[in-house]
Amino acid sequence: MSTVQISASDVNKLRQQTGAGMMDCKKALVEANGDFDAAIDYLRKKGAKVAASRQDRDSNEGVVIAKTTADGKRGVVVEVNCETDFVAKNADFVAFAERVADVAVNESPASLEDLKALAIDGIKIADLLIDQTGKIGEKIEVSKYEVITAEKVVPYIHGNYRLGVLVGLSADVDAAEEAGKDVAMQIAAMNPLAIDKDGVDSKTIEHELEIAKEQIRAEGKPENMIEKIAQGKLNKFYKESTLLNQDFVKDGSKNVGQFLDSVAKGLTVTAFKRVQLGA
C-alpha cells in the first residue's frame, strides 16, 4: 500500500492533464505511488480496457466538422462519433472533434487511417480515441474523412453539427464565399447525386431508364414511343438529382448553374462533399 500522500491539487493537476474524472485520477495516483507519468499510463490502460468492452456498441451519434485551409484552396470534413446525443452536445467532445479536423486540414492525410496515425500534442489520434473512450465511457470513433481542393472551397455545417458540406468553386471571385454558402445549403437540403449529368455513373443511368420504360409500358404507351419518353424522364431525373441542374432553392426562377453564372460569368462547382451524421 502506498504511503505517498495524494493532495487535492495533485488530483486536480492530473485531471487537467488528462480530462479523466476526479476519482479515477486519485486512484491512478495512488496506484502509481504519486508518479504522474505512471498515473497517466494507468489511465490510458484503463481507457483501453473500456474501449475494448465497447467495440460491439453502435456509435451513431456525434458531430460533423467541415473546415478549410487559410487560403481556402483545400477543405476537409470529418465525422467523429459517440454513442449518445448527450455526449455529442458536450463542449469538450465538440472541441476534440474540432482538433481532429484541424489536424486533417493542416496535415492533409491521404486516408482516414492516415489521419488516425497523426498526432495531437504528441499522441496519435488512434490512441486519443481510446483515451476519450476511457474518459467518457462511450465508444468514440472517427468514421469519415473527406477532402477536396479547388480555387475556392467553402465549408458549411448544418443542424448543430449533424451535416457538413464542402463546395469547390472554379474561381475565387468577389462574393464567392456567400455564393458557396448558398450552394452548400442547397446540397445540404437537396442531396444531389453529382455536379451535373456527366458525373452520374452509367449503372445509375441504366437503372433510371429501365424504371422509366417499365412505367411507360405500364401506362400502355406504344413501343415506338417508349425510348423517346424514357429520355424525357431521364432529363427530369438529371434536373432533380444533379446539382447544377436543380432549381435553386433561394430563387426557383433559375437553376444552380444559372445562379452561379449570375454571380460571375463562368463560375461553377468543380467538386463537393456531403457528410451526414450516421448516414
Rank of each mutant, 00 (worst) to 15 (best):
A117S: 11
T270N: 11
I157L: 13
I216T: 06
K228H: 11
N255V: 08
G62R: 00
I148R: 11
V153K: 00
C82N: 06
Q16K: 15
V256R: 01
E83A: 04
Q276N: 12
T3Y: 15
I123C: 07
T242F: 04
K135W: 01
I120S: 03
S143N: 09
L234M: 05
G19F: 03
N191P: 05
Q16V: 14
N191F: 13
D58L: 14
K203C: 11
T68V: 09
A48L: 07
K116F: 10
D24Q: 10
K73H: 13
D37G: 09
V263M: 06
G21F: 05
L169A: 03
D35R: 04
V200T: 02
D85N: 13
I123N: 11
I123P: 03
N33S: 07
A8Y: 05
I136K: 03
R74K: 15
K265S: 10
K273Y: 15
E240A: 04
A171M: 13
V94N: 05
D56W: 02
C25Q: 01
A264L: 14
Q186F: 01
D201C: 14
T268P: 04
G122R: 02
L112Q: 00
D114M: 11
G47A: 07
V87N: 06
A271G: 08
A271T: 07
F237T: 00
L209P: 02
A88C: 09
A264W: 11
I125N: 01
K233M: 10
A264D: 08
R74Q: 15
H158D: 06
E177D: 12
I40R: 09
A52I: 00
Y238T: 04
S108M: 14
Y238A: 03
D56H: 11
Q186N: 02
D56S: 15
E146Q: 13
P222F: 12
A20W: 05
A230V: 09
D35M: 07
A184S: 03
L129W: 01
I148A: 08
C25T: 04
F259M: 11
K213V: 10
G122K: 04
E227H: 12
I40Y: 09
S108I: 13
G21A: 10
G134Q: 02
S108F: 15
L166I: 06
G122W: 02
A95R: 08
Q231F: 05
E141V: 15
A188K: 01
A39S: 06
R99H: 11
V200K: 01
S9L: 12
L169D: 00
L234I: 02
D261M: 11
E113D: 12
Q5W: 09
V80Y: 13
G47F: 00
Q215R: 11
I211Y: 03
V256W: 02
A28I: 00
K152C: 14
E206Y: 14
L234E: 03
I123K: 13
V77K: 10
K27P: 04
G34V: 05
Q276T: 15
I120G: 04
G72C: 07
A189R: 07
L267A: 04
R99T: 06
R217S: 13
S9E: 15
Y145D: 01
S241G: 08
S9K: 14
A66V: 03
F36T: 09
K45W: 09
E31W: 08
A110N: 14
Y238S: 06
I229G: 05
I148N: 10
Q132H: 11
E151M: 11
